[in-house]
Nucleic acid binder design. Sequence first.
DNA 1: TTGCAATTGAATATCGTTTTCAATTGGCCG
DNA 2: CGGCCAATTGAAAACGATATTCAATTGCAA
Lengths: 144, 144
Amino acid sequence: MKEFLKTKGFKMTPQRELIFRSFFEMGKHVSVEELYDKVHQKDRSIGYSTVWRNLKVICKVGLAEEVNLGDGVTRYDRVTREPHGHLFCQNCKRLIEFDIHAVLPYLVETGEEKNFRADSFKIEITGLCEDCQAMENKKNERLH
Amino acid sequence: MKEFLKTKGFKMTPQRELIFRSFFEMGKHVSVEELYDKVHQKDRSIGYSTVWRNLKVICKVGLAEEVNLGDGVTRYDRVTREPHGHLFCQNCKRLIEFDIHAVLPYLVETGEEKNFRADSFKIEITGLCEDCQAMENKKNERLH
DNA sequence: TTGCAATTGAATATCGTTTTCAATTGGCCG
DNA sequence: CGGCCAATTGAAAACGATATTCAATTGCAA
């Protein structure tokens, strides 16, 4: 990791080490605040802006990318080899991934038709996840 | 329009009339600031928060929806009968629409597979539009 | 016309993101 | 090893868009 960062023009520090490690432990769709909470538990001297900056660094070196769902919070999603879309539950904010291989060719073609050079694709489906639908049903039962 | 609003529990006012009218004249992908500029030209007494609130009202009554592209600005997109995706040029911020009918069945099915109740779909392709690609090419030529 | 809830404009609060600044530190070079 | 310089850090503050507050006004149903 240290060598990898060097090739990108970044140094390794204890804080960066901890922040990177924590981010990759947490998996996907992490917000600055969530990561800060986790990191701060382990080392109470690490500041919020350091966590924020390092999430940007993780993106700059290509290990993650920003995800925006319109709820005002930027999340950072670990870049995987597999392109995927998101099912975003409006109620519990859960983010579920799904495969978008099947539609990518169509999207690329669509861009080309309009002479648009596509760099990245995002597909977000908003709605209610299974659990929240169940909750909603219960609530409705009680009303009757 | 007045009657329609009434059924939704809203009143009509001169300000609202002007804001609604301006929004629908402007077409698509309007930010609060853009709409405020336009409205303020016509009636300098209308405040920013009134414009903001009325964009929310337009969404609440189902005539528009918020679009978020990760550049920190919420845009309001007139709801059309035709579902569409967006080509978003990172350079000039232009937003080009494209038809997503072909992929909707796949997306619905994907949600259902995971017992997810889909309410809305967003497909955003980020990259460079035709014009900005041309500019980029020119810039590269000059460098050689 | 009257009453009341909805609406408005200005100001301010909020909140996530981003920058500033002085102090510290990693890592290259001699 | 020791010194140097750019990168990094933490705290605080700046920023910018969104959202709320409040007193005054206004739509509209009765």
